[in-house]
Design a binder for these strands. Sequence first.
DNA 1: TAAAAGTTTGCACGTTGTGCAACTTCGCGT
DNA 2: ACGCGAAGTTGCACAACGTGCAAACTTTTA
Lengths: 187, 187
Amino acid sequence: MAAALRLVDERGLDGVTVEAISEAVDVSPRTFFNYFATKDDAVLGGPLPTGPSMRERLLAVPAEVALVPALLEAMSADIREVQAERDFWLRRLRVIKNNPSLLPLLVARGECAEEETIAAVAARTGLPADSLFPHLVASLVGAAFRTAMMRWATSGDTDLHDLVREAFDVLAVGLAAPAPTHEEVSK
Amino acid sequence: MAAALRLVDERGLDGVTVEAISEAVDVSPRTFFNYFATKDDAVLGGPLPTGPSMRERLLAVPAEVALVPALLEAMSADIREVQAERDFWLRRLRVIKNNPSLLPLLVARGECAEEETIAAVAARTGLPADSLFPHLVASLVGAAFRTAMMRWATSGDTDLHDLVREAFDVLAVGLAAPAPTHEEVSK
DNA sequence: TAAAAGTTTGCACGTTGTGCAACTTCGCGT
DNA sequence: ACGCGAAGTTGCACAACGTGCAAACTTTTA
């Protein structure tokens, strides 16, 4: 994975063959495909991050906390993990930005998390899991999180957790536009 | 495109080769690739729907309308178009549901609309186009729209416009959970 | 040391996707 | 009717992706 990510970062997705990647790690191409189903998998792939499921984490948040802050809380572990491997993720996100055909895969990976989020939101609100609301919330949270990540990756060194919080705040207030930047908030 | 969609609907994405599609329309496989870059393109593809740009449509909505309803208004043309070709879209969405590897492509197609939405939201709010808010709104709107579409496709015969409105309402009120279903709204 | 279990590898094959050059088709002006 | 050029279509060769199968190799275990 590391070799694949590095090579694609240097030469672009189409400039790197499976043969090149396997060669870089002294393995036969056939062995490559024993571990990754596709070339893309090697770049973005690897096993999904394990740990307590989204469902459990969300339900662990006290019930009196509103939904959006609760979701933020439930995701904070992932956020910390991403920030702990800052360089790795910056490179990975840069690669995605340069090779948009990979973005779909990132979305797909988020989808398994989405499944969990749906169940968790349904459980928390008492709504049936096949009603619109849980599905909607899950996809919105995923979109907000991705947007914050992408921004974090490009726009310098801000704290990821702050960015996600900012995005979630926008969600929580119903997409109210923030005041134009340099304007003082006069009380 | 029609042949590709039909065949993939019948046999699944992997059960249909480019050769089969081209054969079904009496063309050589080589010609197929003169029109579609990939097999997926033939299934989901075709030229993007043209018409007044999202930007223009959004700016055409009176400024006193709040952001979310304005976005709904701006998208209503697309919604009507989808509903006008109901059968086509139902089949297309069913195919996507059965072949999740296509979903990414659907997202990618939405992305060009997303570019426009970013610009439009920036213009409407007076925020710089590279600030977080417009990006966030665009991705959220896209996610809400996709979720509503998917629901429309699976969950029977409801009106698409109503579903999108419902989703946008959730967005507008900050993800407040609706009251559990059969409960009467007592005034 | 030898059998068992697990990994790596080579090989053959089908499919996707591209560049190039030849071929067909069609309209158009003379 | 003839030839001309533009546009579309096709075949061919080729690189890369991805998979099934069985042989070879390595590690573990007895």
